[in-house]
Simulated assay, not measured.
Amino acid sequence: MSDAALLRSRAEQLAAPLPALLAGAQHLARSVLLGSHGRRRPGQGDEFWQYRPVVQGDEARMVDWRRSGRSDEQFVRQKEWQAAQSVMFWVDRSQSMGFASANLAPKGSRAAELAMAMAILLGHGGERVGLSNHDLPPRSGALQLLRMAQALEGDDDHADYGAPNAREIPARARAVFLSDFLGDVTPVEGALTMAADRGVSGVLLQILDPQEEAFPFDGRTIFESMGGTLSHETLKAGDLRTRYLDRLAERKARLRDLCRVTGWQYHLHHTDHSASAALLWLYGALERDH
């Protein structure tokens, strides 16, 4: 079995019990019929919303040639139901996400598994899903899930820390960002601000290893980034613990405040905790965004 197929299999196993627990299929079907997916009023989902530029992956039949003929760009005639039904994921694949305590999954593996499990659940409800930073605009169907799995099992980002991209998220869509968010917070602020300005709501899931919370280091210690570009040696690692924990608490508070200001939702997940519990929270959080 390929790595991509194995990832999808694990995600399907993780997602399997949740629709029954949440009455997911029935609830999602009812929500579509009642127009609670962000549409302005009930209908069949064919209300015109906006024109947007063509992106990679759009089919030629989607292009509105009359509108495109008035400029040098090609445009797609996007409908309100299509925008509101789209969920875009950003999964941090940077070197930092490769960190793991003994006998625990790396943060990046947990993030990819949760993203795939959410995509499967959303697909069951008729949602369109995609990956930002991977040229995968929102689509539905089994082929899209396979493409997502292949992208997430592909080459990792060689940067020490990842940065989300909101430019590929359709207006009025929803989004899920999964990362440890331990790098420069400025790109995160920019992405969430841009998303909020375009009517995009979403959830931010911070994923941390328990060692990153406990800081169980003392004596002579060499700290290195996962990519090897940053290094710090100290003879008294224990003396750094209070300062480290204070800065970590400040980062969490900053992320929570950013989500509050932009209308997003924040949650913290540790890799030694249940993946099902994190998936349950994500599923409920996106439902509350409707």
Results as ranks from 00 to 15, higher is better:
Ser2Cys: 13
Ser2Gly: 08
Ser2Glu: 04
Leu7His: 08
Arg8Lys: 13
Ser9Gln: 12
Glu12Arg: 15
Ala15Leu: 08
Ala15Glu: 07
Ala16Thr: 12
Leu18Met: 05
Pro19Val: 00
Pro19Trp: 10
Ala25Pro: 08
Gln26Ser: 07
Gln26Pro: 01
Leu28Asn: 03
Arg30Lys: 06
Leu34Trp: 13
Leu34Asn: 07
His37Lys: 04
Arg40Gln: 14
Arg40Ile: 04
Arg41Pro: 01
Gly45Tyr: 07
Phe48Pro: 01
Phe48Val: 14
Gln50Ile: 05
Pro53Asn: 03
Val54Asp: 07
Val55Ala: 03
Arg61Ala: 11
Met62Ala: 15
Trp65His: 07
Gly69Ala: 14
Phe75Pro: 01
Phe89Tyr: 06
Asp92Trp: 06
Arg93Lys: 14
Gly98Gln: 12
Gly98Tyr: 04
Ala100Glu: 08
Ser101Val: 00
Ala102Tyr: 11
Ala102Ser: 10
Leu104Gln: 08
Ala105His: 12
Pro106Met: 05
Gly108Leu: 01
Ser109Leu: 11
Arg110Tyr: 01
Glu113His: 05
Glu113Ser: 11
Glu113Val: 00
Ala115Trp: 06
Met116Ser: 04
Ile120Lys: 03
Leu122Gly: 06
Leu122Lys: 02
Arg128Pro: 00
Val129Asp: 01
Gly130Phe: 12
Leu131Val: 03
Asn133Gly: 00
Asn133Val: 12
Leu136Lys: 05
Leu136Asn: 03
Ala151Tyr: 05
Gly154Thr: 02
Gly154Phe: 04
Gly154His: 14
His158Phe: 11
Ala159Pro: 00
Pro164Thr: 11
Asn165His: 08
Ala166Glu: 00
Glu168Ala: 09
Glu168Arg: 05
Arg172Glu: 06
Arg174Phe: 03
Ala175Asp: 01
Asp180Tyr: 05
Gly183Leu: 12
Gly183Ile: 15
Glu189Pro: 04
Ala191Val: 02
Ala191Lys: 06
Ala191His: 11
Thr193Glu: 02
Ala195Thr: 11
Ala195Ser: 13
Asp197Arg: 15
Gly199Cys: 06
Gly199Ala: 04
Gly199Ser: 03
Leu204Pro: 07
Leu205Phe: 13
Leu208Gly: 03
Leu208Asp: 05
Leu208Val: 11
Glu212Ser: 08
Ala214Met: 12
Ala214Trp: 14
Phe215Arg: 11
Phe215Gly: 06
Pro216Val: 00
Thr221Ile: 12
Thr221Ser: 00
Phe223Asp: 07
Glu224Cys: 05
Glu224Arg: 09
Ser225Phe: 10
Met226Tyr: 01
Gly227Ala: 01
Gly227Asn: 05
Leu230Asn: 09
Ser231Ala: 14
Glu233Cys: 07
Leu235Cys: 10
Lys236Met: 04
Gly238Met: 10
Asp239Trp: 15
Asp239Tyr: 15
Leu240Gln: 09
Thr242His: 13
Tyr244Phe: 10
Arg247Lys: 15
Ala249Met: 08
Glu250Gln: 14
Arg251Ala: 06
Lys252Arg: 13
Arg254Leu: 12
Arg256Glu: 13
Arg256Ile: 06
Asp257Thr: 09
Asp257Phe: 10
Thr262Asp: 01
Thr262Leu: 05
Gly263Cys: 00
His267Val: 01
Leu268Ser: 07
Leu268Val: 09
His273Leu: 04
His273Phe: 02
Ala275Cys: 10
Leu279Pro: 13
Leu280Gln: 10
Leu282Trp: 12
Ala285Glu: 12
Leu286Thr: 06
Glu287Gln: 15
